[in-house]
Amino acid sequence: MPQYSDKVMDHFTKPRNIGEIEKPDGVGEVGNPVCGDMMKFSIKVKDNRIEDVKYLTFGCGAAIAVSSMVSEMAKGKTLEEAKKITNKQVAEELGGLPGNKMHCSNLGADALHKAIDDYMAKEKVSAG
């Protein structure tokens, strides 16, 4: 088993914001091409801010911790701010990830960004 930081272990053992939002404003799903794992984010948006965020994850300890961390980082942020969250930042916030687990951090921010894009695309349709 890889050596995980305390932060990773904390998020792995007590993952925050698990689940699926009932009537989400945006949904983003990504699969991990490296090892075949999956992540699904759903968001609720109010006044351009991420009011609520939830996720489901099928993946390793790092992937679970990453999704939990991303959900915490995104909550309350404006869409623009949330779009700026990078995989690198997520890994840093987690106190680093073992080298061969860096690819798992790609999943989290990607899924979140996809959910935001999904919301924006829908907004455009309803506005237009």
Partner: peptide
């Protein structure tokens, strides 16, 4: 429906 490393870590705990 679940992944092995996560299982392994939880079982180890």
């Amino acid at each position: 429906f679940v992944e092995g490393e996560a299982l392994l870590m939880r079982l180890q705990m």
